[in-house]
Nucleic acid binder design. Structure first.
Length: 872
RNA sequence: GCGGACGUGGCGGAAUUGGUAGACGCAAGGGACUUAAAAUCCCUCGAUGGCAACGUCGUGCGGGUUCGAUUCCCGCCGUCCGCACCA
């Protein structure tokens, strides 16, 4: 039979229709089988899907389809993280309404996702900007407020004084507003906060239970929460205004209490503010400090600035020891007490500050065996390193910093001028945003009653559609009528909160909502959410390793506290995938060219690029993350249109480990496409010669058939193992090997099967297994093959066979033999051979004798089933 | 600045987590089939010495632990990600 090439363009939509028609991916909440919840981070509807989405959703789909084939009731939903700034930017730039822009994008992207052949339950789809979704989010805000998990307090924002608007950190470029170019200032606003810090300890300790999370993510979260034990004490103040007799300070390094040469407070410290009222110089200095962005990186890298207040801080251990008190721009009001002791010898920031303002430096401890004093580099050893203490609370001595810190705490507590205190770096979560396209915060401000939550029966507080984007700022705030309402308590005149919620709130509970998105009354249905959650495997980018995951963990606890769910951890398994990167191309005039605009000619190892239309040469630049600005993106539609979804999916799984970046290349896609055809050729060649499905195989006395069965079950075991560990690239490699094995064993003589029923039965089993194994990765091709080899149902609904483990062990094994750690030979022994037998066999080898060169054997190390090392 | 990762042939990577370094794929070179091309198939492919058998070196750099280190420890160098209002 002459085989036609596999035509993905014709086949893929056909199978997608079949899946849709039979609704085979619609999950039933009352299915009695064990559940498995696979979720990929839902996309922001930016316009079109990109290759990062293709990679993310392919990985999730492989897991979903694999678990389905193993008999689980798989939940694999999809939705849209639909609120956010880009919609407002588009509204300003192109005069489109954020709502229509967003929903149009969703329609486009949904069609694109559908063309990928993902096994998604679309019946559960929602967008976070649907009032039917944010209604419940507002309800939970009200519940959290009642439960004491929400509060209002002052916090800082980036303020653009020209546009009169709040800027996001990413809108501040080199300290200036991105549109106006004005110097950005810090401004204090009263804002809403979720009290995530209430859960600091729990969020930290529960990380130990998340054993199916990457270690790096858990470490990052641990550091972010930043639990530290330290000393809290008071400086006595000399020369301070009334009411400021003492200054509370927290330090994590009590062992350096005898090394400070200054004290410093934040420009936002109450004392700094009080001083500013009477001292114009201090007011000006504080003002200058506020001309700085609010991001941590900026604060850390900015030049250290200080202002000597003239006030003296008296050391609690020796009140006659006076330190100058500064106001300093690098001291944060949010952490500890907003005041620090400056110990220049052992903190680089303090040292930079001391050098700049001519303050002394006192060495508290020195490296072992050294008498050198700190010069321009602070001495900051690991806390576990042993050093010699020369100037601290006790006698000079040799110990680790940890030991000295513990001892210092004891002494200071005993002497009664300080207490041990646990502090966390984690700050409360500020959720107020002065923007339109977000979930309205459901409270009403009444002059008489104060802050009143919107009654639950009045939810949702819906965004008005009639808004204007012709000037910067929050359109909700300047809407003529929307914010004016009657107070729910006294019915007097009142106004709505015009701030909306951080979009991280939207994405902090969508996974729970997916379990019953049809419930119009409540955010969740307890019986359902408690059974379908937690998410068994969550997959998304590393960039979300801290914030999104931490907020979701907090929000789930808050939902538990308010009775919306019965568990605290939302994600049992977590996986962070790498980015999709691509070469960049620079034209002669310095602009970037897109991959679609250029042609590459390869001459040996030399690659030359030129523009398609003009023939101008193009410089091939470094490989970078796909981005619009570098123009190195590849449109998934183009790839699916020319090669098919299966090829794109296969390529995304090949080669690179999923947690690392993958380089998109035209050659790589071609290789993937070749494999699609190779599988099709193999299966369609064999199809006419295979016996009917469902027969039994007994190949015990048939070496060729037995070899086939061994290959098939080994493939089943290896590939399943690869997918379970999410090592898709190795699973792909094993599939290449398996296809190669089948080609050698079967494809050369398919006619022979007719005369050999045992071999034919084994071949049927082996080909069935091949098709089942490729199905999670290339589902359309698999369906085409499955029907070609005579199955009536869909492979997407087929169960995987049990692995016959008996086929995986052989009677003899081959061990590498080393002499003094270098491989010199191999030896084949019975699987159950005892050590003396192995030693004898090894010492009899010529290569071993030669390598020993007459030296006596000192010992022989035998690692069972692994290796033999002869030490001479 | 702080925190987290990563670094192996021409390229992406594999190595059962301390046990044969380079599986599998891509690129390249040679050959078969073809009038030709495409497609497909076969062979070679870390460096170096040797006609060969085979030997030596080799996992970013420098040290260390071990019978044995890509894997563990210490110190460098380089690249990438996050830093609380991008999502």
């Amino acid at each position: 039979m002459i085989n036609e090439r596999y035509n993905a363009r014709e086949s893929e939509p056909r199978w997608q229709r079949q899946w849709d028609d039979h609704a085979i991916f619609a999950t039933k909440n009352d299915d009695p089988r064990p559940k498995y919840y696979v979720l990929e981070m839902f996309p922001y509807p930016s316009g079109r899907i990109h290759m990062g989405h293709v990679r993310n959703y392919t990985m999730g789909d492989v897991v979903a389809r694999t678990m389905r084939a193993r008999g689980y009731n798989v939940l694999h939903p999809m939705g849209w993280d639909a609120f956010g700034m880009p919609a407002e930017n588009a509204a300003m730039a192109n005069k489109v309404h954020p709502k229509s822009w967003t929903y149009a994008n969703i329609a486009t992207m949904k069609a694109q996702l559908k063309s990928m052949g993902l096994s998604l339950d679309w019946s559960r789809e929602f967008a976070t900007c649907d009032p039917g979704y944010y209604k419940h989010q507002q309800r939970m805000f009200v519940d959290f407020l009642a439960a004491g998990l929400v509060e209002r307090k002052q916090s800082k924002v980036n303020w653009d004084p020209v546009d009169n608007t709040v800027l996001a950190n990413e809108q501040v470029i080199d300290g200036r507003g991105w549109r106006s170019g004005a110097l950005v200032e810090q401004r204090e606003l009263t804002q809403w906060f979720f009290k995530i810090s209430k859960y600091s300890d729990d969020l930290l300790s529960a990380l130990d239970r998340l054993d199916r999370w990457p270690d790096k993510v858990r470490i990052m979260q641990r550091n972010w929460i930043g639990k530290s034990e330290g000393l809290r004490f008071n400086f006595g103040l000399v020369g301070a205004p009334e009411g400021f007799d003492t200054l509370p300070v927290f330090t994590t390094r009590p062992d350096t209490m005898y090394g400070p040469t200054f004290a410093a407070i934040s420009p936002d410290h109450p004392l700094a503010k009080a001083l500013a009222e009477t001292n114009p110089q201090i007011a000006a200095f504080n003002e200058q400090c506020r001309k700085m962005g609010t991001s941590q990186a900026e604060i850390d890298t900015a030049e250290k600035l200080g202002f000597d207040t003239g006030i003296k801080a008296a050391h609690p251990a020796d009140p006659s020891w006076h330190l100058p008190l500064y106001i300093a721009n690098f001291v944060l009001m949010d952490y500890g007490t907003g005041a620090i002791i400056g110990c220049p010898a052992h903190d680089q920031r303090d040292l930079d500050f001391a050098r700049k303002y001519g303050l002394p430096v006192i060495d508290v401890f020195k490296p072992l065996g050294s008498d050198e004093s700190v010069q321009d580099t602070a001495f900051v050893p690991a806390k576990t390193e042993t050093v010699q203490y020369v100037h601290w609370v006790g006698e000079p001595g040799v110990m680790t910093c940890e030991q000295a810190m513990a001892r210092s705490l004891e002494i200071f507590e005993r002497d009664g001028w300080g207490q041990r205190e646990i502090n966390f770096r984690l700050r409360d979560w500020g959720i107020s945003r002065q923007r339109y396209w977000g979930c309205p915060i459901p409270v009403i401000h009444c002059e008489v009653c104060g802050v009143v939550p919107v009654p639950i029966k009045d939810l949702p507080v819906q965004l008005p559609d009639d808004i204007e984007f012709d000037s910067p700022g929050n359109p909700l705030d300047r809407h003529p009528t929307w914010k004016h309402v009657a107070c729910p308590q006294c019915a007097g005149p009142a106004r709505r909160e015009t701030d909306t919620m951080d979009t991280f709130v939207d994405s902090s509970w969508y996974f729970s909502r997916f379990t019953d998105p049809w419930n119009t009354e409540e955010p969740t249905t307890r019986a359902v959410v408690d059974r379908m959650m937690p998410v068994d495997q969550y997959i998304g980018g590393v960039e979300h390793a801290i914030l999104h995951l931490l907020y979701s963990r907090f929000f789930t606890r808050a939902m538990q506290a308010t009775g919306h769910v019965g568990f605290d951890e939302p994600f049992r398994g977590m996986f962070t995938q790498g980015m999709v990167v691509h070469e960049t191309y620079k034209t002669l005039d310095g602009t970037f060219a897109s991959p679609a605009e250029i042609r590459i000619l390869a001459d040996g190892d030399n690659r030359q690029a030129s523009l398609l239309d003009s023939g101008q040469p193009v410089e091939i630049g470094p490989i970078e993350k796909m981005s619009k600005s570098k123009r190195n993106t590849v449109d998934p539609d183009d790839i699916i249109g020319s090669y098919g979804a299966d090829t794109a999916r296969w390529f995304m799984l090949s080669d690179s480990p999923p947690d690392r970046d993958v380089i998109w290349s035209e050659d790589g896609v071609k290789g993937a496409s070749r494999f699609v055809q190779r599988v099709w050729r193999l299966v369609s060649t064999l199809a006419p010669h295979l016996p009917a499905p469902g027969g039994k195989v007994d190949a015990a006395n048939h070496p060729a058939a037995q070899a086939l069965r061994v290959a098939a079950h080994r493939a089943l075991s290896d590939i399943l193992g690869g997918i379970d560990r999410l090592r898709f690239n190795t699973a792909v490699a094993k599939l290449y090997i398996y296809v190669g094995d089948l080609e050698t064993m079967l494809a050369n003589a398919p006619e022979g099967l007719a005369a050999d029923p045992v071999l034919a039965a084994a071949a049927r089993e082996a080909v069935d297994i091949l098709v089942l194994l490729i199905a999670p990765m290339m589902p359309h091709l698999a369906e085409e093959c499955w029907s070609t080899i005579g199955h009536s149902g869909l492979v997407s609904e087929a169960r995987w066979p049990e692995i016959e483990t008996g086929l995986l062990v052989s009677d003899s094994i081959t061990l590498p033999v080393q002499v003094n750690g270098k491989k010199r030979a191999e030896v084949t022994v019975a699987r159950d051979a005892q050590n003396p037998q192995i030693e004898a066999a090894v010492l009899a080898l010529d290569a071993v004798k030669q390598a020993l060169d007459g030296k006596p054997v000192r010992k022989i190390i035998i690692v069972p089933q692994r290796i033999v090392n002869v030490v001479g």
